[in-house]
Design a protein around this nucleic acid. Structure first.
Lengths: 151, 151
DNA sequence: ACGAAATAGTTGTATACACAACTATTGCAG
DNA sequence: CTGCAATAGTTGTGTATACAACTATTTCGT
């Protein structure tokens, strides 16, 4: 088992438990992100692109405009225009100018996109296990503390 | 108060508490990172560069070779060569080829770098409060769960 | 002593985030 | 109706991560 101090080879003790939690949080998030990135890599898709596809599946068959995608993303300041363009080039989404409001661009996931998500879902076993080292009760407690932290 | 579902405007319920915790973790980490980035911005330094400087202060006055910096960093796959070069251009660190092993490059923080860290420490009040919405006991529990999660 | 393997670091290319400036379209006050 | 503000999206520049190929140096087996 590796404590956060061991992971980053900390020489000195942390000032306090809060500082340590902040570092631990970011370190663990990176760890999780990298684990996710590596399982998606064989499908030639990044976690950010995957996230956008899942958002679009959530709304399917209704399209979403770019702004709606942005506000559902984990990282709000990411650039939906460019992410969507990457997905379009791969054939996973389609873009169309909205007829009633020509400023808007409507995005919809394609059949190909949906079937990619299905394939990834089906092999998610390994990924799911990587976070099942904690119990359901611990996951709930984690969610509670994280929600409180952001207040 | 904003639950993770509200933050990302989730349409459907999460499959389970573990999935939700994984998303919550990454979302909260981004939130924390952005909060950190914005306080450092007025000093024209990024969180990654700041992290490298603190690592070097931890070892001061002993220099560290690039590889030692890398393995202490939060994100191991980041590129210490390029980060250190940015810091060198700003005058916060010095690089020198190691005499006993010419493959190595020794890095040491400068007086200017140390005084920058001191200045940032002195105005860290606001940042510290941002994670004090949780109690010390909750911070400890968070640390315990995160360490367990990575096993 | 020689050459292969290991070690330390550098560099190139693709992806994504951060921020700001920019275009195009729509809505609204007067 | 006109023009200004608000909205929706695009694009440019700088920073950092991901991964792999590369150079230089040292170590070690024979």
């Amino acid at each position: 088992m590796a404590s956060i101090e061991e992971e980053i080879k900390q020489q000195k003790k942390f000032d306090n438990e809060h500082q340590k939690a902040a570092v631990n949080l970011m370190f663990t998030s990176n760890w999780l992100y990298n684990s996710n990135a590596s399982r998606l890599k064989k499908h030639d898709i990044t976690p950010e692109q995957f996230n956008v596809l899942r958002i679009l599946r959530g709304s399917y068959p209704k399209p979403l405009m770019l702004g709606e995608i942005t506000c559902r993303m984990l990282d709000k300041s990411s650039n939906a225009t460019r992410l969507v363009e990457k997905l379009r080039q791969k054939g996973y989404v389609e873009r169309e100018q909205c007829e009633t409001n020509r400023r808007q661009v409507d995005i919809v996931i394609t059949e190909k996109g949906l079937s990619l998500l299905t394939k990834i879902d089906n092999e998610a076993e390994e990924w799911n296990n990587s976070i099942k080292t904690i119990t359901k009760a611990e996951a709930q407690e984690l969610n509670r503390i994280l929600d409180k932290l952001r207040r």
